[in-house]
Structure formats: structure tokens, C-alpha cells
Write a protein that binds this DNA or RNA. Structure first.
Lengths: 341, 341
DNA sequence: TTGAAAGCGTTACCAG
DNA sequence: CTGGTAACGCTTTCAA
């Protein structure tokens, strides 16, 4: 069961390897015609022989010779996180449609792991990289750029870097939507819990919240509580009790993990939403529909985020400009923001 | 910014490319000594030069020449599903530890997509494949075997195929544990909802349930309702109402999706667990702890499943025998199986 | 429209 | 222990 090479096909079809290579690499134009300088009859014959013999291009050889790989890498912070799970398939599908293979690897927030992943990127002749949710460390981007690999930033902006593609959510709008929903339903003392991560997505959501509060002349009521990913469990309980003591009537939670944390604490304390506290959560989860009261939440257009990031990257790989796209969030209404009586 | 090749290193270190190749491929043994037929001093010099020049092996060239890639592929049915999200990181970490890179791609249940993925596997000289949760279609495995690529089946058995590695959950035990828990807490009319998928994991869980019911002399009460993934939403509501009408007091849900579906219907119908219906769910989710009453559920040892599958595959790649591992599930107790009064 | 031949950077083989 | 050299299978000139 020897492997079929381009030479086998050439011999069997009575043509040169060059011709076979041409035919195998030709893209079909809209008429289904092969777009290459080969006699159509010859091309047809080559295609038939290749098919019959079960020929498949040896990827390593092609990559070695051409220096390209038709492969892109996607480096999320954690391949198993919520946001990424929803977006990975979209990326995969779109990449496949454009003729690229995708390669996933977690950076894990660790500079060492990140460095290894990037070495792998170099070693594999990978054509471009999509860097998805990462909290902390701009090294990724600059290192990748040093390697002259096209980069697209997904979900999170780094304002100091501009030679990369960007596909982002309009996070300010998300913060504004959440706040407007609460105000519209009669809530006034609306506060927010956020992480001290210093990443653009969160700070923009905070900005949206602040501006909306200001627009509604509620800025004196605006207050953002901060916690860290690791301390959230204990901080959130304290924050909620403090807020209730001060008469706060609603909370905006700008990430899924904070939303889950808050629901957990409220359950533990026997608090009900919206009676004791109205809520707006973030991202998608069965929890929002299965919690005692359904929870209003902001959703990101995962499909578009994924597809757009691939399109942007491929365009850059093929010599195009780095583009920036900002997509709109949406609000899914639930019982947690029911009109206040 | 020319790329540094093995030849550059050889010239700079005054040795042949052969020596450099030896050194770069040598694994360190436990003493940190390089395990290769090269003078330690020479090796050290080569290493230093390589470091200084920033040499990185060209993956495509190595793969082309050696026919191997130190890469394994993982093909789940859906890269974004629950089970897979929890296991992917474990696979990645373990593979990395053993010197392999991982490549993820969804088969998506579609034979065409599957075929494409396998072509990619061949084209990339991939050394082995882990096939994770797939519902329907044994083609995968036989196709991969035809390609002479080592295969490990993860989570789901195909009894007719034996030349592959297998890493499975003791699904019969899982069914038994769930049933025993319910019986132990005083429930008697225990039923089960399952999918008509004909996959081993589900049918084994059913077997465990049946056997446990038999052991407790409750076999006359045993009943399994069937639905399909697509029809679950409407079927589950009917099933629950029918069950309640017949005085059923507990349900065992052998998958996460069925668990979520049942919780959703119960919420909609205003039913409470365990008062109206005791429940045992499956797999991990925030839902189980955040639902009005916490839900007892069976968990799989995701870490072990992931690591073991990689270890098994790598052993096969390196010429070892195909092994079969069966891991034990665990039960996480919650309020949904509180003792019946 | 076709083909010959020169590499791409590595590893494997065989000598020393 | 060390080194020369022939592949690996493909793409890419260049010439016909």
C-alpha cells in the first residue's frame, strides 16, 4: 500500500509532473472551468487518473517547497472556555470554505506556553494567526508580528497596536444596552461588578454603563465593584450584601463567569430576581433560561465574530490591508428585568 | 531576516549537518544528558550555536523526510460540545508533555466532512487519531484504519472493531450508580429517558439501570422512554406528563442535553424536584448547582479520559499494542435526590 | 500548452 | 563519534 505521489499520476496520465501540479492546484472559476494554462482535455484526464489512483497532495512537501501551508492557527486563552466553544466551529467552517485548515492551541495566559505555541506556528509555516480572548500580555501580538505572521485580534483590542486585523464587539454599546434596559424597566440604583483585568472589552462595557447612567441623569447612583477572577467567589457575596444594604436595585454583570457567580450567591442567600435585585448577564448559557427566573442577558454575534475574523485574516495573508470590524451585541429579555411596580 | 537552517548552525559550529540533526533530535534522559552518539562537548556547542542563531526545525522538511509529524488529530463530533470542551485541554496538555502537537477538527456527523477531515489527516502525515464522541457512522474508524493510522476511540465503543485503542467510561456502572442512589433514597418508580442513537455509551447506561432495577426487585417498574436529539424538546414534555400520571417518582437522564431538557420542562410546568420528581442528571454544568434545587448528577473523569487517550495513542504510534481502558464514573449528590419521607 | 530540472530543509544511510 | 550525500514529494523557474 505505497503512497501515491504526483509522479505516479503523471506516469499514468502520460504527462509531466508539472502538468499534474498545475491541475491539482488550479481553482475552479465560477463556470466550473479550471483556471490554469493546461489543455482542458489533458486536465480532465489528469483529474480522472488522480481520482482513480486516490492521489492526495503531500502536505509537507508542498509546504516545504512553497513556504506556505494554507493553515491558520487560532490561539485562545483557553480552548475550553465558554466564548471560544461557541465560536470555534464558526472559525473552522469559514476557514474550510476558504481553503484553509485550522489549528487550535491554548496560550493559557502563560508566557512560556505562548512562546511555545508561537514557535510551533513558525515551525509549521503557518500562514496567519487569530488571537482570541486573552487576558493579560501583549507579548503575543508583538512576538507574532516580529515573525511577520499576519495577526487578527478577536474580541479584545490593544489600542497601541495597529498593524493587525481586529474583529471586536461594540462593548460600549453592550454596556449601554444593559443599562438602558434596566432604566427602561424602572430601576434606578443600578451598579456593576467587573474584573480588574485592564482588558479593552471589560473597560468598554464599563464605559457604556457609565455613559448610559449619565444620559439618564443617574450618574450619582453609578458604582462599579471590582474583583479578580480568583477572588470572585468570596468578593461577590460581600458586594451583594453591601449593595442591598445601600438599597441597590439592579446589577449589570459584564461576563458569563460573573453572572454565574452572582446567581450562585443569590441562590445561597435566598434572594430573588428581580424582586430583590434585577439582573442583566452576559454571553449565552442554559443557566439564563433555567434559573428560577429567566435572566436577561447580552449576547455576542458569535457566528459573525468567527467568520469575520477568518475573512480578515485570509485577506491579509493574500496581501490585503489589516481591517477592523466592530459588531453589535443584542439583548435577550428575561424575567430578571421585569418592570418594576 | 532569512530563515536559519540546520546548515547555518552546522557551519557556525564547525560540524556537519548530520551532527546538528542528531543533537536537535536527541531527547534528554533523566540526568539531563543528551541521549545520542555525539560527544557531549560537541553537543553543547551545537546547542549553544542553535540557541544563539535562533534556529527552529522546519517542520515541513522534517515531516517530508521522515514521514512522521509528531502530530495527532482529535476528531470529535462537535468541537464545541460540552463533553469535549472539558476534555480538550487535558488532551492538549498531555500531548504536549509527550512531545506531540494536537490538531482538532469536527466531523459534524457528516460523512463528507468526515472524509475531508481524514484526507487532511493523511495529507498532513498525522501520526494518529483520537476519535471522540461521535453519534452514528462507524465509517470513521474503518476509513482511518484503512489508512493505517493508529486510532483511539474515546468515550464510545464499537464492539466489532478491535484493532484500535479504547478509552471508555464504565457506562454500565454509571447507570447502576444513578439507579442505586435513587433506590437508596427511597424512590421506587424510577424511569429513564434515552436517545435512540444505538451508541454504546447510552445502551450501557441503560443496561446498568435495568440491572440495578432488577437487583432491587423493581424490574416491573423499569421503563425507558426514547426520543431523538431533534425531537427531545417536544417529546420530553409528553413523557414527563405521562410519567407523572402513572405515579413515577424519579427519572434518570443519561446525558447532559436530556438533563437540561427535563429541567426546562419541569420549570415550565411548575414542577419541583424532588417533590414532584427526583432526578439524576449526567455530566457537568453550572446548571446542576444553580437550578432551584441542586441536581444530583454523574460525572465522568474527564482528566483521566483525556490523558489516557493520548497515552494510549502515543504508545500505539511507537509500535505498542492497542489497549483498552475503562474508567469509573462518580456521583455528585444534590438536592434532587433528597431522601423521600 | 507542455516538460526538464533545480531546489525547499531535513533525516537516513553508509562510510570512515 | 563524525561526515558526505541521497532521497522525501512537491512547486517553480525556464525553456521549448
Amino acid at each position: 500500500m505505497k503512497r501515491i505521489t504526483i509522479r505516479d499520476v503523471a506516469r499514468e496520465a502520460n504527462v509531466s509532473v508539472t502538468l499534474v501540479s498545475f491541475v491539482m492546484n488550479a481553482k475552479r472559476d465560477k463556470d466550473g472551468k479550471l483556471d490554469c494554462p493546461v489543455n482542458p482535455d489533458t486536465a480532465k484526464r489528469v483529474l480522472e487518473v488522480a481520482q482513480r489512483l486516490g492521489y492526495r497532495r503531500n502536505f509537507a512537501a508542498a509546504s516545504l517547497r512553497s513556504g506556505r501551508s494554507n493553515t491558520i492557527a487560532v490561539i485562545p486563552n483557553d480552548i475550553s472556555n465558554k466564548f471560544f466553544a461557541g465560536i470555534s466551529r464558526r472559525i473552522e467552517d469559514k476557514a474550510h470554505e476558504l481553503g484553509y485548515t485550522v489549528f487550535f492551541a491554548s496560550s493559557d495566559e502563560s508566557p512560556e506556553k505562548l512562546s511555545e505555541v508561537l514557535d510551533a506556528v513558525l515551525a509549521h509555516n503557518i500562514d496567519g494567526v487569530i488571537i482570541a480572548p486573552v487576558t493579560g500580555g501583549e507579548h503575543v501580538i508583538t512576538r507574532a508580528m516580529d515573525m511577520r505572521v499576519p495577526v487578527v485580534l478577536l474580541d479584545r483590542d490593544v489600542e497601541t497596536i495597529n498593524e493587525v486585523g481586529k474583529v471586536l464587539l461594540d462593548d460600549e454599546e453592550a454596556g449601554r444596552m444593559a443599562t438602558d434596559e434596566l432604566v427602561g424597566k424602572g430601576y434606578r440604583k443600578i451598579e456593576m461588578i467587573s474584573y480588574t483585568l485592564g482588558i479593552s472589552s471589560l473597560s468598554e462595557r464599563e464605559t457604556g454603563y457609565r455613559k448610559a447612567m449619565m444620559d439618564h441623569d443617574l450618574y450619582d447612583n453609578a458604582k462599579i465593584h471590582y474583583t479578580t477572577y480568583g477572588d470572585a467567589a468570596k468578593d461577590v457575596e460581600r458586594i451583594i450584601q453591601d449593595a442591598l444594604a445601600r438599597g441597590v436595585d439592579a446589577l449589570f454583570l459584564p461576563t458569563y463567569s460573573l453572572s454565574a457567580q452572582v446567581l450562585s450567591v443569590m441562590k445561597k442567600l435566598g434572594l430573588q430576581t428581580p424582586k430583590d435585585l434585577a439582573l442583566v448577564g452576559f454571553d449565552e448559557s442554559d443557566i439564563f433560561s433555567l434559573y428560577a427566573t429567566t435572566v436577561t442577558h447580552i449576547v455576542q454575534p458569535l457566528k459573525e465574530l468567527g467568520e469575520r475574523s477568518v475573512e480578515t485574516l485570509v485577506r491579509m495573508i493574500e496581501g490585503g490591508e489589516a481591517e477592523k470590524t466592530v459588531l453589535k451585541p443584542a439583548l435577550v429579555a428575561g424575567g430578571s428585568t421585569e418592570k418594576r411596580n
